[in-house]
């Protein structure tokens, strides 16, 4: 089972779209796929038609001392082979309730270990803040996907997630493979082109070689609670994520993306 996390400490950069798109494609290829929503905002949960404000069985339950089995919390989606572990708004209280208790950063890792024979892939949608949930995601995954909107301010915020990644690498005692994915690229605008150029200049091989373009069909897909690749496999956005998926699967076989190792 491979576990990937999609994270950025800036919101609105295409995190949920990236998670849903990659998971949808994996499921369409027959891979048993689990989408985990670790963001208390519950965008991914809402994407699949569940209300994070009223849902009762969610990731929140996993943090209880008497946590239920993961299987009891899973929801089917309208896509075969794709299950969802939803978020609830109450997860926003976990940091305050649990503080920094030893081992509480490993809850999701343990939970996913318990279903490792049930899924081929897990994709985690992370919250945009560094707290117990993001630490859990980064502790559980072996590949981090960092979507970055091709826009000046979004790129400025990239340093923060890379710093977090480095700190986590130290605490984990190993490295975490990561790739920066330029999103919402609009080739008609100067701002997008300049932002992409500076992203490649500053982060080099950490940046995926292609881009995810702006595509209004992402919005249509979310309205229908479906990944875009299911709604319209030929859409530009779906094709871009298919290429990203191929790249990630290939990298998984022969890792060559930059690995940040903790040291010193």
């Amino acid at each position: 089972m491979q576990v990937w996390a999609v994270a950025n400490q800036k919101g609105g950069v295409g995190k949920t779209t990236t998670a849903v798109s990659l998971a949808g494609l994996l499921a369409q290829r027959g891979r048993r796929t689990l989408l985990v929503d670790l963001d208390p905002h519950g965008s991914l949960t809402a994407y699949f038609g569940h209300d994070p404000d009223s849902i009762t069985d969610s990731v929140y339950e996993l943090f209880r001392d008497d946590a239920p089995a993961v299987g009891a919390l899973l929801r089917d989606s309208d896509v075969p082979e794709l299950a969802v572990l939803p978020a609830s708004t109450a997860m926003v209280t976990l940091d305050r309730q649990l503080g920094a208790q030893a081992g509480k950063g490993l809850v999701i890792k343990r939970a996913l270990d318990s279903v490792r024979h049930d899924f081929d892939h897990v994709i985690i949608d992370c919250p945009p803040v560094l707290g117990i949930l993001m630490v859990n995601a980064l502790a559980a995954c072996e590949q981090l996907i960092i979507p970055v909107q091709t826009e000046f301010l979004a790129i400025k915020g990239l340093e923060r997630i890379l710093h977090t990644l480095q700190m986590i690498g130290r605490s984990r005692g190993d490295g975490l493979r990561h790739v920066i994915v330029p999103t919402m690229f609009d080739r008609r605008t100067r701002a997008s082109i300049d932002a992409l150029r500076s992203l490649r200049r500053d982060y080099g091989t950490q940046v995926w070689e292609a881009v995810v373009p702006v595509d209004t069909q992402f919005r249509d897909a979310s309205r229908q609670h479906l990944p875009l690749s299911v709604l319209n496999p030929r859409a530009r956005g779906a094709a871009a994520y298919a290429a990203l998926l191929n790249s990630l699967l290939a990298q998984g076989e022969v890792p060559k993306l930059r690995v940040i190792h903790g040291h010193g």
Partner: peptide, 14 residues
């Protein structure tokens, strides 16, 4: 502070 936070969360309780 960040290092302490992360180390604690990621340390197996004994």
């Amino acid at each position: 502070a960040l290092s302490m936070f992360l180390d604690t969360l990621l340390r197996e309780p004994q």
